[in-house]
Computed example of a mutant assay.
Amino acid sequence: MTAPGATVRARGVGVAVDGHRILDGVDVDVRPGELLALVGPNGAGKSTLLGVLSGDTVPTTGTVELGGRELRRHAARDLARVRGVQLQQQGLAFGFRVEDVVRMGRSPWHRTPAEDDDERVVAEAMERADVAALGQRHFPTLSGGEQARTSFARLLAQATPVLMLDEPTAALDIRHQEALLDVLRRTVRAGAAAVVVLHDLSLAAAYADRVCVLADGRVRADGPPAEVLTGALLSEVYGHPVDVVEHAGHLLVVPVRTPSPLQEVL
């Protein structure tokens, strides 16, 4: 089994579907102690890259390693003990209670010594994701944001050293967006590795240690937010003028809006 703190390393990764190339020659690392944000416009390949890094999508070309060993050589159960994944779609068709959904995250540790910690780990995960009060609610009755927080709690309960999240903040209000990313950053500071797909560039700037900008299936930039999130690059990549400004020590990414004719008259 791969030791905690393992690096996920992708080199020359390409993915083609029905002759359409979604990723092309992507190199990226997910390293312990770092929170990596994948950003880019719709169709850039962010979710596909996350799928490749997690082992759920097999690349057409290139290699992915976890802890120096090819990802495809890891047994499924061992892989589930090393990396946890939170997808955009929750995919639960039955009326499980929230507590039961979070407890599903412990399944990779069944019949191992770690199973003895299940109750404590589940309770802590629910507190950290702010779903403890929802424990007896049935998952389908929850709002989209509550479902997302429950899925985050399940990811935390899995207790893996590598965490992968696909747009986990999309359905959350401001408070819970900030809280989720703060918990994720604290987990990274404790030695985990994390990669998260984000659409909110200001959130990426505030919480990520590194930002990887994707466009047309290729890496356009990869580095610290202050170096990568520039108005010139983002305007080109997103096809819309963007300003990057500093406020209270944080970078804010703001779209440039052309005044409407009514505004110009007023």
Rank of each mutant, 00 (worst) to 15 (best):
residue 28 V to Y: 01
residue 62 G to W: 00
residue 37 A to W: 06
residue 46 K to G: 09
residue 68 G to Q: 08
residue 33 G to N: 11
residue 51 G to L: 07
residue 30 V to F: 01
residue 57 T to Y: 03
residue 55 G to A: 11
residue 54 S to P: 09
residue 22 I to F: 04
residue 61 T to I: 04
residue 38 L to E: 04
residue 63 T to G: 10
residue 28 V to F: 06
residue 44 A to N: 04
residue 38 L to F: 12
residue 26 V to G: 01
residue 44 A to C: 13
residue 25 G to D: 09
residue 57 T to A: 09
residue 44 A to R: 00
residue 71 L to Q: 05
residue 61 T to N: 12
residue 51 G to Q: 04
residue 21 R to S: 13
residue 64 V to G: 01
residue 57 T to R: 10
residue 38 L to H: 04
residue 31 R to L: 13
residue 58 V to C: 13
residue 36 L to Y: 05
residue 21 R to H: 12
residue 49 L to K: 01
residue 25 G to T: 07
residue 39 V to K: 02
residue 38 L to G: 02
residue 25 G to E: 08
residue 63 T to F: 03
residue 64 V to A: 03
residue 74 H to F: 13
residue 52 V to P: 00
residue 65 E to F: 04
residue 38 L to K: 02
residue 51 G to V: 06
residue 42 N to I: 09
residue 36 L to H: 02
residue 21 R to V: 15
residue 36 L to N: 00
residue 23 L to W: 00
residue 34 E to M: 14
residue 55 G to Q: 04
residue 43 G to Y: 13
residue 25 G to N: 08
residue 34 E to A: 15
residue 72 R to V: 15
residue 50 L to H: 01
residue 50 L to G: 01
residue 69 R to I: 12
residue 32 P to Q: 10
residue 29 D to S: 03
residue 33 G to L: 07
residue 53 L to I: 11
residue 57 T to I: 15
residue 49 L to N: 00
residue 60 T to F: 09
residue 53 L to S: 05
residue 62 G to K: 03
residue 48 T to H: 02
residue 39 V to R: 00
residue 22 I to Q: 04
residue 23 L to I: 10
residue 38 L to N: 02
residue 30 V to D: 02
residue 24 D to F: 01
residue 52 V to R: 01
residue 64 V to I: 05
residue 58 V to D: 14
residue 50 L to E: 03
residue 37 A to E: 08
residue 29 D to I: 06
residue 67 G to W: 02
residue 72 R to D: 15
residue 59 P to G: 09
residue 58 V to W: 12
residue 35 L to R: 10
residue 34 E to F: 11
residue 43 G to I: 14
residue 35 L to E: 03
residue 31 R to H: 05
residue 25 G to P: 05
residue 47 S to E: 08
residue 73 R to N: 13
residue 61 T to V: 09
residue 61 T to K: 10
residue 24 D to T: 07
residue 71 L to Y: 03
residue 43 G to N: 14
residue 34 E to C: 13
residue 45 G to V: 06
residue 55 G to T: 05
residue 59 P to I: 05
residue 60 T to Q: 11
residue 39 V to N: 00
residue 43 G to F: 13
residue 69 R to W: 06
residue 40 G to A: 10
residue 35 L to M: 15
residue 30 V to I: 13
residue 41 P to H: 08
residue 33 G to F: 07
residue 21 R to F: 10
residue 44 A to W: 00
residue 30 V to S: 05
residue 36 L to G: 01
residue 25 G to W: 03
residue 24 D to S: 11
residue 67 G to Y: 04
residue 43 G to S: 15
residue 32 P to R: 11
residue 22 I to D: 02
residue 42 N to V: 09
residue 74 H to I: 12
residue 25 G to Y: 05
residue 71 L to E: 00
residue 54 S to H: 10
residue 46 K to Y: 08
residue 51 G to F: 03
residue 41 P to Q: 07
residue 61 T to R: 12
residue 29 D to H: 10
residue 36 L to V: 14
residue 33 G to T: 10
residue 69 R to E: 13
residue 52 V to E: 00
residue 59 P to W: 07
residue 24 D to E: 12
residue 48 T to R: 01
residue 60 T to C: 09
residue 56 D to Q: 14
residue 43 G to H: 14
residue 38 L to R: 02
residue 26 V to F: 04
